[in-house]
């Protein structure tokens, strides 16, 4: 492990369970911004297409889901129009799934840099997660448009609940992303399983259906998935489908922290081998 004592840099074989050099991480924060800036810049380089895609993709998903699940399958939507019901779920789900995918592939994608330059590797998955906040912003515009269209009342809770939900989503996707990105370095076939895993997760999360259709006695299982809590609370907040469940907010926050800690732990454990096996 590496220690900075005054001006001395000591490099020796890694030992100990988990030591994160927070000072160093702070010193490298600029690199985190730069990576995020680069990803955003490259994605929105062709500004029109970039932004159009960020708007188009969630919108079309919403239309298709509304048609098949809302109109044909008649999935319950707790009394609000199905399109806005499913969109409020997709809003957070898309942010979660795309940042998770991006974070999981971040190390493999930047293997050339990892092999040639030192910097705290934690930066890569985390910046990959944060980058998708921009897309979230664009998707939120559609949400606002739909709320106006469906004449929804905007509750003031949004001011503090929305940031909290974003924090929960970000730390759980980067936590799981940290874990998966290190597994991905070791086992190169993981990236092929990943889309399938995320697909499954979509159906295990109340995006296209309300959490209320799950039998009460097994509903607690849903809360192992912080996105269940996030989406259910997002609905109470945007659509007034019920009171905000503060208990579930706390549970989700707690669970997402657990995922994050586990992710960091596993990542740090594997970090020493990255350059050798990538």
């Amino acid at each position: 492990m590496i220690k900075n004592k005054n001006d001395y840099l000591i490099i020796k074989p890694p030992s100990g369970l988990l030591n994160i050099d927070w000072n160093e991480l702070w010193k490298y924060r600029e690199l985190l911004y730069i990576f995020a800036w680069r990803d955003i810049k490259v994605r929105y380089k062709q500004t029109v297409i970039g932004i159009a895609w960020a708007l188009f993709q969630p919108f079309v998903t919403m239309v298709i889901f509304s048609f098949f699940f809302g109109k044909l399958a008649k999935v319950s939507s707790e009394g609000v129009p199905y399109p806005i019901f499913v969109y409020s779920g997709l809003l957070f789900w898309n942010y979660f799934s795309s940042s998770l995918t991006n974070a999981s592939n971040s190390l493999i994608k930047e293997q050339n840099i990892i092999k040639k330059v030192y910097f705290p590797r934690l930066i890569l998955p985390i910046s990959a997660t944060v980058t998708h906040l921009i897309d979230f912003g664009f998707s939120l515009l559609i949400m606002i448009g739909m709320m106006i269209y469906f004449k929804m009342q905007l509750s003031l809770h949004i001011l503090y609940i929305l940031p909290l939900l974003l924090i929960i989503t970000t730390i759980s996707s980067s936590g799981i992303g940290l874990f998966l990105s290190s597994v991905n370095v070791k086992y190169r076939d993981v990236r092929y399983i990943l889309p399938f895993f995320i697909q499954i997760l979509l159906y295990l999360t109340p995006v296209i259906y309300p959490v209320s259709i799950i039998p009460e006695n097994i509903r607690w299982i849903m809360y192992l998935n912080p996105m269940s809590g996030v989406i259910t609370i997002a609905r109470s907040m945007f659509l007034n489908t019920g009171n905000i469940d503060y208990m579930s907010l706390l549970v989700s926050l707690f669970i997402s922290f657990l995922y994050f800690l586990f992710g960091i732990y596993y990542f740090k454990k594997m970090e020493q081998y990255f350059a050798d096996i990538i």
Partner: peptide
């Protein structure tokens, strides 16, 4: 090892000051 891309398995390396590497 000196540029901290990979870790040593034994021994120690002490560098005074900051390091830039151009691999």
């Amino acid at each position: 090892i000196m540029s901290r891309i990979t870790y040593p398995s034994q021994g120690q390396l002490t560098i005074k000051g900051n390091v830039a590497s151009l691999l």
